[in-house]
Nucleic acid binder design. Structure first.
Lengths: 226, 226
DNA sequence: CATGTCTGGCTGTCAGACAATCGGCAACGT
DNA sequence: ACGTTGCCGATTGTCTGACAGCCAGACATG
């Protein structure tokens, strides 16, 4: 057998150490939007970005196109880009899609994930519960949960789409979500999902997942329309 | 009342006569990909595009980012863009997502569409059946069907996502899909969907829709793996 | 035959420039 | 005082030209 084969160097074509500048910039701006350092409705002026990021306008424009395609910014012709602010009906759309697609992802997780991945999922949900009581980093905990879920279930297109939906949901946090007591309830709902996963019951897991997102959507839209 | 109000100029904010150059170019390239004049795997060289389309490289690059985000082209760092060629598992992913999301759209169509829209849907499916027998323009007929469906059901994000999935499915046509007799069967399946819609039975319609896409996926993957 | 080396073809990124367009503001006439 | 009109600055849309860096394949070499 060839000396340079197998998994000596790790599989696959090298993690591409130095990402293209354009992607680094994209990540930074996306992070700024998701952290609400750039608030929905706020305009993104090309010249400002070139200055603050130290890249040329051409690069900035490519980045904006990228984020626009992800739905995080909206470009108004002849006026430029601004951080997307979602309408109530957009929000409803997004939550419905998430319900459908995450149910799909969960079903797959049940079918394809190994024991260790299930344990990791349980650990993640425990972490969420803990951060719901004490004031831990709730956000990071939830991210961790979805990270495990995705790794064990989604490939390619599904993962990409779900990531996009998650990101859009975060935009809604601008209008402060999470009613009192919601975090704890959310943790319980997710725990129910993992219960079903551990029992290897795909349909029950999917249903629990749908329920969770429906509830999340309910409190969200309550805030939006209220 | 204001002289310049009402429907003298037609309603709504003007169909935007002159779209930004970048969008015209995007549409053209996308069309070329969807018509398979650019085949999956084919490289898109920036200089060639600038010459053939008569626009600058900067513009071409923005267009490429856009199409990359839509999943129609894949950019390999330091090598450039090529028309996406889908793996079997990608295809499976996409069909599963379509099943989930179109079921969603159909449910909504039942709830929200008016009688005239239901009639339009029936007309569209009849047209598909006709073009399945005689060698009519099968493609256009199916497009028409989805056009009606989308108009009556989807708003914003859902519509955009589904359009993206449809487009990706078309990429698979490169590896010639449609087994013998498939078009006729597809027409029957879609007819079943409309039957349920006419009966205003949302769940039945959604189920019929899922069935249709599962069958489409089956013949598609049969071709891909075989 | 295996190993270096070179070179052309592209991409990644930049700077600078110019026209077209939008939005607001101020001058204007009534 | 108030609605119009016309102008100006701020920004986007697009083009040109340039240069470094990377990749693959041709070529030369031992």
């Amino acid at each position: 057998m060839d000396v340079v084969s197998s998994s000596v160097w790790g599989p696959e074509p090298l993690p591409r150490v130095a990402a293209p500048l354009r992607e680094q910039v994209t990540d930074r701006v996306r992070a700024a939007i998701l952290d609400l350092r750039l608030r929905p409705g706020e305009r993104l002026i090309e010249r400002e970005l070139t200055e603050n990021l130290g890249v040329s306008r051409a690069t900035v424009r490519e980045v904006i196109r990228q984020l626009a395609a992800e739905g995080l910014v909206t470009v108004v012709p002849q006026r430029g880009a601004e951080v997307t602010s979602l309408s109530a009906s957009d929000a409803a759309d997004i939550y419905e899609m998430r319900a459908s697609l995450e149910a799909l992802a969960v079903r797959r997780f049940v079918q394809r994930a190994g024991e260790d991945q299930v344990r990791a999922l349980r650990a993640a949900v425990d972490e969420i519960a803990r951060s719901a009581e004490a004031a831990g980093d709730h956000l990071a905990a939830k991210d961790r949960f979805y990270e495990v879920l995705m790794e064990g279930s989604a490939s390619g297109p599904l993962q990409q789409t779900l990531a996009g939906l998650q990101a859009r949901v975060r935009l809604l946090r601008a209008t402060s979500l999470s009613a009192p007591g919601r975090p704890t309830q959310a943790a319980q709902e997710l725990s129910a999902v993992v219960d079903a996963v551990e029992a290897r019951d795909a349909e029950a897991a999917a249903d629990a997942c749908v329920l969770h997102i429906r509830n999340a959507a309910a409190t969200a839209t309550a805030q939006l329309t209220g």
